[in-house]
Amino acid sequence: MESLVTLGLSTLSLFGFYALLALGMGLVFGQLGVVNVAHGEFVMVGAYAMYAFDAVPFPLRVLVAVVLGVALSLLTERAILRKLYVRGMLATLLAMWGLAIVLRQLAEAVFGATPRSVASPVQGSVEVLGVQYPAYRLVVALVSLAVVAVALIVVYRTSLGLKLRASIDNRDMAAVLGIPPRLMIAGTFAVGTTLAVLAGALQSPVLGLTPGLGVAFLAPAFFAVLVVRPGSLAGPVMGALVVALLSSLLRRYLTETVADLFFFAALVVLIAVRPAGLSWRLPRWSSTRSKQPA
């Protein structure tokens, strides 16, 4: 029982983090068709923002990080991506790859290579069903999931979300109907990457800050997006749950190195078997089945 609770809690805390990352990455991929390989570096930017503005109270500092994230992502979209959309996915992928290197080097130039840390605003631990768990991790997981929930409500229940989904489905048609494509693109990129910056800011008290810290987060976020139906916005969140659960389960029973190996192997197999992504809605399963010729 106790180990089950521990497993659940570690999955929850990973899920909160990955869900923010995957939702952001999924938004950018769905709207712009850009594989944001600099996603991890935006996490790093968020974490270092928390280190840099040490004097500001923690919640306010998160806000500062978010503002910084919005500014940085709008600048990126304007200066780098806007000219490259027409050149296709490879061009934008390479550009983002380059941006990732620039951001890492910039962090190294500004903050040096010595690892840094951010003090946790919530000390101590709380008891959850007989298991002591760091309070901060729980708070962050809940805040992250709340942000994800709000984002999904906006996407599926507001007129802004409707415009966004329309623009993703068929940008030309949406433009004809008066939804400004440029604004939708820039806005989506800003929201998507700022979610990564926010994730980095929230996670900073549990991380050792180095310029290369973001590299490790690209793979789980990317897989979370890949295991679900492309273009789906809620999908990556489910994907994040799959990735978090898989990771905690494997690492619960295997050594870290072997677990890592199985983790990546399992995801590659999953994607090879269902290249169109997993579908999480039962009706969809039945509808695909019914379409198959007898």
């Binding site: 690892p115 840094r116 631990s125 991790r137 549990v206 991380l207 810290l213």
Partner: peptide, 16 residues
Amino acid sequence: VGGDAVSFVQQADQFG
């Protein structure tokens, strides 16, 4: 070692 050392020690402290 490296940044991992900081993550590990910090998290070990947070987990008591």
